[in-house]
Design a protein around this nucleic acid. Structure first.
Length: 240
DNA sequence: TAGGCCATCTGGTCCT
DNA sequence: AGGACCAGATGGCCTA
């Protein structure tokens, strides 16, 4: 099947039809259907919208409403473009993730179809976000492991200072997933479960995500409460 | 047919 | 004042 959302949206919803015919008038013609505005009567109602200045004529109000709708549409389309860019990065990992989470591992991604490979089907928005989050956590875990190994090797030797420093480097690598520090990216700096004076370490971050600890407590902060994939062998999760 | 996912409209709120 | 952001509501498309 073809991906539906963006193509569908651009295909027959966007543009003149929706642009010129507000849903409230298009569908019911009278009462309006659109969401919380169901009581507003929309622009078809002779009543003026309270949001619009009184001095505006009905046509001007309609024009303003079209303008607002267009902006919102554009905003959502930009958001979808960003989501597509993220999908491009995550899709290669999603398939391997499913395979490693599938029958072999006895685990199932909560936001991927049960027992089904996402191959040929694009990731949903929430799947993309959850997958991206876990991927970021995995990168942190891998980095820590690498530092540890380098630390062992470097006794008496030389190791790039950046790799051994406590702070995280700003990744600009594949997918550029980390545009700022992971703490900022994940909102962990605001995590209520962490002491105020101790910045969360990468280990802290990973502990809530991809440690392979099944059934562990969920971090109470709103960031960490995002549903996560639990897996027994984190290193195999995103193998290419 | 039910449920998931999505785009769009809309009103409210916050920010510049 | 205008724009950005957000969340609720709605209907369409698709799959199991």
């Amino acid at each position: 099947m073809q991906p539906v959302s963006s193509l569908r949206g651009i295909g027959h919803r966007e543009g003149t039809f929706y642009e010129l015919m507000p849903r409230s008038g298009m569908v019911t013609g009278v009462t309006g259907v659109g969401g919380s505005g169901s009581s507003s009567g929309g622009l078809q109602s002779p009543q003026r919208h309270p949001k619009f200045p009184r001095e505006l004529s009905l046509e001007e109000q309609q024009e303003l409403r079209r303008k607002i709708n267009s902006r919102e549409r554009k905003r959502m389309q930009d958001l979808n473009l960003a989501m597509d860019a993220l999908r491009e990065v995550m899709v290669p990992y999603s398939s391997s993730a499913t395979s490693s989470l599938g029958a072999g591992a006895g685990l199932q991604h909560p936001y991927l179809p049960l027992g089904a490979s996402p191959n040929g089907r694009r990731l949903s928005k929430i799947s993309t976000l959850v997958l991206a989050r876990n991927y970021i956590l995995l990168l942190g875990s891998s980095l820590q492991e690498m530092r540890r190994l380098l630390g062992e090797v470097s006794i008496g030797g030389t190791v790039p200072h950046l790799l051994l420093t406590r702070g995280w480097p700003l990744f600009t690598g594949p997918g550029q997933l980390l545009l700022s520090s992971p703490e900022q990216q994940l909102g962990l700096a605001q995590c209520s479960s962490l002491p105020l004076n101790s910045a969360p370490t990468p280990e802290d971050s990973v502990a809530w995500g991809s440690r392979g600890v099944t059934g562990g407590p969920l971090c109470p902060c709103r960031v960490c409460r995002v549903p996560r994939v639990v897996h027994a062998t984190p290193t195999a999760r995103f193998q290419k």
